[in-house]
Structures are given as structure tokens and as C-alpha cells.
Design a binder for these strands. Sequence first.
DNA 1: TCTGGGGTCCTAGGACCC
DNA 2: TCTGGGGTCCTAGGACCC
Length: 412
Amino acid sequence: MIIKKEKTILHIDGDAFFVGVEMAKNPKLKGKPVVTGEERGIVSALSYEAKAIGIKRGMPIFRVKRDFPKVIILPGDYKAYVKYSGKMFDIVRRYADDVEEYSIDECFADLTGLERLLKMNYKQIAERIKKEINDELNISVSIGLAPTKVLAKVASKYVKPNGLTIITKDTILDYLVKTPIEKIWGIGPKTSEFLKKKGIITAKDFVTKKIDWIKENLSQPYEVLWSELNGEYLMKIDPITKTVYSSIQKTRSFHPNTNDKVFLLSQLSKHVEEACAKARYYKLVPKKVSFFLKTKDFVYHEYQISLTSPTNAAEIIIPLIEANFIKVYKKNILYRTTGVTLQELVSDSVTQGDLFGSNNLAKKFEIIHEQIDSLENKFGKHMVYLASTHKAIKRKEKGTDSEDFDRDLLFI
DNA sequence: TCTGGGGTCCTAGGACCC
DNA sequence: TCTGGGGTCCTAGGACCC
């Protein structure tokens, strides 16, 4: 008989991560109400002090300025967040071999077996990791320890900020009874609404249901969730650092909402250029491209195009979108968002060697793009762009007075 | 919570085939 | 011509995540 050894999974979650990094960069901000997201026009992260006075994630920046004049508003510094994120994960890797970088401010790690190796118990290991992150990076994190990933997520959320919560197989229900079902990782608004109608209010209500009930009423991923919440380790730690994307998306919302065809097309054109630049950076080419318009009532109208030959040349993709634009566009509807997605990305080496058809054209563009991409690296984004994108850039500049300088524009 | 931008994965159902 | 049952592949779109 095989006795399965209980796993010990660690989950780390940065506390108000973006703002935490800003405070580490500039300690004078500590203890103050601070938000980031100035460049986006909505609050993307907020300090606990800002939360305490009633600011919420997603709140428009103009409202923060108007109603909370004392709040410090900062633009996001994504490069810094990536840097701190990497350092945080490196600290975890001092202890664990298998670290999964789940998002910019979260990771999972498998600590199983480290007790004996490090001559510390799991709690002491977690405390050490936490202290090193605190001391070396000057940011605070919350940690959860549990037998599964889903339970580790419950644990890290349980005490925040600066928490350390340990769930063992024996104490699972003690924690789940105090966790509302909608707080569980993987249970969103639709499913929690459904479950509540069935009388399932807390995570304990969920796990104490029979598995047959789950199978009858929900789909496969929820069976996995149920097992994980019951302490059965199913979701593996995936330590592979993701540099490959399966899709690349660029979207933008605008207000006022509009039905200006030319404007919408120029937005889409810009998205294609940005998405293609990213694809080229990662040496990926899409087999499919889709674009969408989202109406002011949040209804998506999407159209998907299969490329006869995969390409990341915007010059090829843009005309395809223009040709199919009328399939989603209605002239009497106001739109709030446009977006482009490059789908089914494959390595660009796969398509090399095919010198026929539109791929041949793509080759020519490849040479131009190498030069454009290196120009942009030197001088910043939007030094160079397609004429079809021009309108989108111009309109954006009108809104921001700070960016009012002449650029050397190069139209292709 | 009147809602930003960038992702992943699963499933139902249609097309097509034997 | 009508009919049954089964498989695979693809697609759209739903749901969820940070």
C-alpha cells in the first residue's frame, strides 16, 4: 500500500503590490493614502490607507482628485514592478526548487520535504521567506501554507496584510466555514450566484456536498476545485516561467463613446501594430487574428480571421481587418472599446522556409520591422507607425497636454 | 462596484466522416 | 431513399483569473 505524503504548498501574495513597490522606492509615501493608475484614468492599486478612506479599485482618477484631494496619485511604473517581482521570486527560490510564478505579485512553491533538509518546520521556513522579502525589498507580503494550491490561496488571503496562515488537513473546515463561496479561487460571479441559489453560502457548504452533486450540477474544473478544497493535491506546481504566449491582445476604451468609423479603424490599426510588435519581440506569429468592437452596453461583436499564412506583419493584417470591419460595425451604435487579438501563436521559425505567397511579402516586411523595432527601442514607442494608425495617435495626444511636442513622424 | 487591460481554459454544438 | 450510431476536429463563446 502506498501512503501519499501530505504536500505543503506555499502561496505568496504581495500586499497592495504596486503601491508597495512605490513605497519601497520612495519611503516617504509610507503610511499615506496612495494610488497608482494615473496614466490609465482609473485606480489600479491602492494602499491600505487609501482603502480605509473609501477609495476602491477601478475608481476614476478624476473622482479621487475631486473627493479625496489628499490622496497621492502616481502613474504605474511597470518596469519597477517586474523587477521587484523577480527579486521576490528569487528569494523564494533560495528555499524551494519548484516555484510557479503565477502573476506579477503571486507565486506558489512546493515546500514538501524541506523541513528535514533545512531543520526548520514549515512555519519557520515561511517566516524566513517573509522576513527576507521584508528586509531586502522593503515590501510586505501575505503567505499561506496548505496541502493544496487552492487551500494555500485561501490561507494567504485569510490574514492580510503581512499575514501568515497555515491550514492543515485537520483544520480545513475551520477556515472554509469562514470563507464566503465567492472568495474561492475559480468561483466567479456566475457560479457563486448559482451556488447561493442552491443554499451554498460558504466554502464549507461547498466541500461538504457530495462529489456526485458537483458532477451533476457543475463542470469538470469545479470537481477539481472541490477535491483541492478537500485537501487532495491535484493542481500541480508548474515551475516553467512563461515567456510564450498563446495569444496577444491589445485593447483600448475611450470616452466619449463613438461610432466614428474612421476613428474605430485607426484604433484597430494601432492595436495591430502594437500586438505585432510584441509578437515579433517574442518571435511569434499568429495563425488567426480576431478583432472586436464593444458597445457602450458592454456587448461584444467579434470577428475572427484565419490567416492563409501566419504573419506578424501589421501591413498584411490591417487590410484584412478593414475588409471585414463592416461585419461587426453598425453605424447607429456607440462603441466604448476596440480590441485586436493575435491567436494560435507559433514560433516564427516554423514558418520560415516558406518563400511563397503572402509569406514572401512578409519576408520583406520582416527586414523593415527589424529596423523599426530597434528605432523604437532607442527612442520610445510610436516614433514610427503606419499612416492608418495616425488618427488614433493624434486623438490621444489631444487629451494629454504634457505630451505636446513634435515627433519625427515617419509614414510608411 | 455601472465596469481597464491582458490573459487562460473549458464546453457545447456544428461539420464532416465512416 | 431512408435510417442509426459513433468518432474527430474545429469554432464560438462562456467563465474565470490578476
